[in-house]
Design a protein around this nucleic acid. Structure first.
Lengths: 165, 165
DNA sequence: CGATAATCGTCAGGTAACGAACAAACTGAG
DNA sequence: CTCAGTTTGTTCGTTACCTGACGATTATCG
């Protein structure tokens, strides 16, 4: 309740506010990304992995999961795909044989050089006409909301009722 | 948040701005929704369908797809699931036998009465402390960005290059 | 040292979303 | 009336997320 008088009654879409628009933007953005990447046979998440490897060099798979905010299991599948396409090498970790080190193959490096930067393009289209102040506000609102939810769920998970001190 | 030295410069997450946070908020929000709904054996989108049917009464499947911004194919699966759970009836349309009318079953109505409203709760937690003005700005930024991207993709799809007179 | 605990990657199973291709049903031109 | 085209829902294949469980490994502590 709190917020928005929200006036009207029907329209499940509108009624939802930030959540609904965050969702719609996420999917629209992903669609744009993927249609830009389709000619190269890449999915959006695959692109992010290549981006990371191209910019920060070889990376431990475990670290990559954190950088991209993905679960280990999710990343595992993506990496398998990229290895199958021969764009990424997955080699056994140096000291620790549980870990895997990821790096671009020659073919991966070559492909990366040819790739456009769809992120920059999409950002230009989507937020070009938006003022920096508004953009910053939007980021802050989303970030704070995410943080509050994360914290709340962590607390609930712990059975951590603040009143139960 | 506590930890995260973050702050610094490159970091693939940050670098993306609104897009990355829209994504993170979307997934965090969905996780919260789903953990609230898990005890009832419902997924988030299934909940939205019930919400719609409970509030606006029986609805044509085709209209529901529009209301919830889903593709026919996506909704088809969701509906199948709800029918299998005996929460929704899918009956042949009156005049047009291609169409399907959806409505809650008795069991569906009963379950709905017992359900909490996780949306309201989540909104309170996520946006309670955020000013209305900031919330409205965030919505506007996301909405405008979505519209620009949609328009751009539609134009590209049509092969509608302004320079190609 | 050896049992136990934690970490890492993978697999299996589930949800949600998409597009392409299809059959059935409707619509409209001729 | 008939046949081509459209609409509606379904099915299938793909991507991308998640959990939970498991095997292999490494770390820790009694």
């Amino acid at each position: 309740m709190v917020s928005q008088p929200e006036a009207s009654q029907h329209e499940a879409g509108q009624h939802e506010g930030v959540g609904a628009w965050a969702k719609r933007y996420y999917f629209t953005n992903r669609e744009a990304l993927e249609s830009a990447l389709r000619p190269f046979g890449l999915g959006s998440t695959q692109w992010y992995v290549l981006y990371q490897l191209a910019n920060d060099g070889p990376t431990m798979q475990r670290d990559l999961a954190q950088l991209l905010h993905l679960e280990r299991a999710t990343l595992s599948g993506i990496v398998t795909t990229l290895v199958r396409k021969n764009l990424v090498d997955q080699v056994e970790g140096a000291g620790d044989r549980r870990q895997r080190m990821l790096e671009l193959t020659a073919a991966g490096t070559e492909l990366w050089a040819k790739l456009p930067d769809p992120i920059a393009e999409i950002r230009a289209i989507a937020f070009g006409p938006t003022s920096d102040a508004d953009t910053r506000t939007a980021i802050r609102v989303l970030r704070e909301a995410t943080e509050r939810l994360t914290e709340h769920m962590a607390a609930a998970g712990r059975g951590d009722d603040p009143r139960t001190s």
